[in-house]
Design a protein around this nucleic acid. Structure first.
Lengths: 153, 153
DNA sequence: TATTGTTATACTCTATAACTATA
DNA sequence: TATAGTTATAGAGTATAACAATA
């Protein structure tokens, strides 16, 4: 088998695995495993909560750009998280049109719990890998995904 | 840094990348890049087309199980693919209740084109990797995804 | 004139319920 | 009695349009 053939076969295998991961049923399963029991957070509000944690206090428009959702959807999901006590709204001091979304202490705790659970799920999925293999995979995974979702530059 | 710390940091990195990949906007971008110009196939009918190619001629119920969608949804998407000339329905000879879904020659060609395009997208995302690195990643990716979407056994 | 937050509206996907036919 | 295919219905998310307020 030539080098090109090996590359090609591996690319096909990656394509198949990617297909598996993106399959709706499998995505749902993953979200369910992660979010089970966390009231107020579901597969739709989770990206808002998680994005806000990543971005820090910010406006709905900024957050919407960050997570790739429309402003109108973001503000509605934010309302649900607010009703669950996980974030607050306050007027911006620098721009009177804007509202600043910010996690509550309870929201921060929830994000930390979810991060921890996802972390554990991932470690459980690589039970017998040496640390070096996990590290190498993490690096390769990051590079390939970044190139896939944002080709060019 | 201890081995546990390195594992932990790598797991967090994997979690972050996974989050990026599953983010709706990025999934949509990927589907758009893959399906652009392929009339009759969109992000909803694609799993049906692709699943049928994987499974071979089969009933809507079998196909629904395979791709994790409800029968009623599967049959409706199949109708769209049928209207686009990519699959046919014929009565099963062994079970008079069942209808067999089967790709048309045009459907087979379409699947092959889409596979080829995804294959190219992936190779383009690992431009300077040696074949061994691609192969190793493919193997690790498959294992981790299988463990994530179907823990236990 | 453009942007922010929000609400109203329309569109689409998905699942549950229900119907018919067959096992 | 259970299962296959299908259609009707309802529930939910998303985006476009439109509103008032501010830049």
């Amino acid at each position: 088998m030539s080098q090109d053939d090996r590359e090609s076969a591996a690319a096909r295998a990656i394509a198949a695995t990617l297909g598996t991961l993106l399959l709706r049923a499998n995505r749902m399963h993953l979200y369910d495993a992660l979010l089970d029991g966390h009231s107020g957070v579901d597969r739709w509000t989770y990206p808002v909560l998680s994005g806000l944690a990543r971005l820090g206090p910010s406006s709905a428009s900024e957050l919407a750009d960050q997570i790739g959702l429309d402003r109108t959807v973001t503000t509605r999901h934010a309302t649900r998280l607010q009703e669950a006590g996980l974030l607050t709204r306050r007027p911006s001091t620098s721009d009177l049109r804007a509202t600043v979304l910010e996690l509550t202490p309870e929201g921060e705790r929830r994000v930390e719990m979810l991060r921890s659970r996802l972390h554990d799920l991932i470690l459980a999925a690589v039970p017998d890998w040496p640390a070096a293999r996990i590290t190498a995979f993490a690096k390769d995974f990051e590079q390939i995904v970044n190139n896939l979702v944002d080709p060019s530059p």
